[in-house]
C-alpha cells in the first residue's frame, strides 16, 4: 500500500519544494522506495532542487495525456536509487491536471511498488493545489512563524479535512505541521511567532521545526537536498522530521538560542 503524502501550505515561498526534496530523499535514504511528484505545472522547480533538470524528457502532464509512459517520464535520482522524480511540465498550465488522470498515475505508481508518493503542491488554494491534496493520506503543512503564513496554513487544513477524497469518504487526512525558517533569536526578541504560538493557533501535530539556515539556500543552488548536509542544523532537523514521519519518537531540537549555541560550539570543536 503506497502512502500518498502532500506537502502543501497555501502561501508561497515558505519552503514546500525544499521540504518535498528533503523528505523524499530522507525516506529513500532509509530504504523506502519513494517518488516525488512536482504538481507546480508551469513553475517547475523541483527538478532544479533535485539537480535533475538536464535529464527531463517527458513530464507529469505528458503521462496524464498519454503522450509518454510513466516509466519514460520517471527520473531516477543519481544519489539514491530508491528515489524517483516525476517532473512538472513547464509549458502547460495547471488546468492540464484532471482528477482521473492524476488518480491513474498515482495508482500506477502504487502498482509499481512505490511505498511513498510525495506530492509537491503549488502555492494557493486553486485547482493545482487542490489536485495535489485531493488524493492525500497524509499532509505535511509547511508554515513560517509569521501570522499570514499561519492563517493560510489554517485555511489549507480546513480544505484538506473537507474537500479531499478521504474527507468525502468520511475519513480524515493525517495532518502534520512543519515550521520552517525558524529563528530562535528573533522569537526571543518578540519579532517572530514562537512554536507554542503557532501550535496554539493550528492545534496540529508538530512534525518538525527547521531553523533558518544559510545551508538551505546553498543546498538549493547546488541542487543537493539539504537533508544530505549533516553539518547543518536544517539538514539534521529534516532528518529528525523524517524519523517522526516514520513513527519514531524524536525530541525536537534547535528551538532555543542556548541549544543552538551549544551545537555551534560542538561543531566548531569538531571542525
Amino acid at each position: 500500500m503506497a502512502k500518498i503524502i502532500v506537502v502543501t501550505s497555501g502561501k508561497g515561498g515558505v519552503g514546500k519544494t525544499t521540504t518535498s526534496a528533503a523528505i523524499s530523499s530522507g525516506l529513500a535514504l532509509r530504504g523506502h522506495k519513494t517518488v516525488v511528484i512536482d504538481f507546480d505545472i508551469g513553475l517547475r522547480n523541483l527538478d532544479l532542487i533535485m539537480n535533475c533538470e538536464r535529464r527531463v524528457v517527458y513530464d507529469f502532464v505528458n503521462v496524464i495525456k498519454g503522450e509518454s509512459t510513466l516509466r519514460q517520464a520517471l527520473i531516477k535520482d543519481k544519489r539514491c536509487d530508491k528515489l524517483h522524480i516525476l517532473p512538472a511540465s513547464q509549458t502547460r498550465d495547471k488546468d492540464a491536471l484532471d482528477p482521473e488522470g492524476v488518480e491513474k498515475v498515482l495508482n500506477e505508481l502504487a502498482d509499481d511498488g512505490f511505498e511513498y508518493i510525495i506530492c509537491d503542491s503549488p502555492a494557493g488554494i486553486e485547482h493545482g493545489a487542490f489536485m495535489a491534496l485531493y488524493f492525500a493520506d497524509t499532509a505535511i503543512v509547511v508554515s513560517n512563524p509569521e501570522v499570514s503564513s499561519v492563517r493560510d496554513s489554517d485555511r489549507i487544513l480546513g480544505i484538506l479535512q473537507s474537500k479531499s477524497r478521504r474527507a468525502e469518504r468520511g475519513e480524515s487526512v493525517e495532518e502534520y505541521l512543519l515550521l520552517t525558517r525558524y529563528n530562535p533569536e528573533r522569537v526571543e526578541k518578540g519579532e517572530m511567532l514562537s512554536v507554542e504560538d503557532v501550535q496554539e493557533i493550528l492545534a496540529t501535530r508538530l512534525l518538525g521545526v527547521i531553523p533558518e539556515s544559510e545551508s538551505v539556500l546553498k543546498a538549493s543552488n547546488q541542487g543537493l537536498p539539504v537533508i544530505y548536509d549533516s553539518t547543518s542544523n536544517a539538514g539534521l532537523a529534516y532528518s529528525d522530521a523524517v524519523d517522526r514521519l516514520l513513527g519514531e519518537d524524536v525530541e525536537h531540537r534547535f528551538l532555543s538560542v542556548g541549544n543552538k549555541k551549544l551545537l555551534q560550539r560542538l561543531f566548531r570543536r569538531s571542525a
Binding site: 488554494i125 492563517r151 493560510d152 489554517d154 485555511r155 487544513l157 480546513g158 480544505i159 479535512q161 473537507s162 480524515s172 492545534a203
Partner: peptide, 8 residues
C-alpha cells in the same frame, strides 16, 4: 469535534 479552520 474537529477544528473549524479559516475559510470554513
Amino acid at each position: 469535534t474537529t477544528p473549524v479552520r479559516s475559510g470554513q
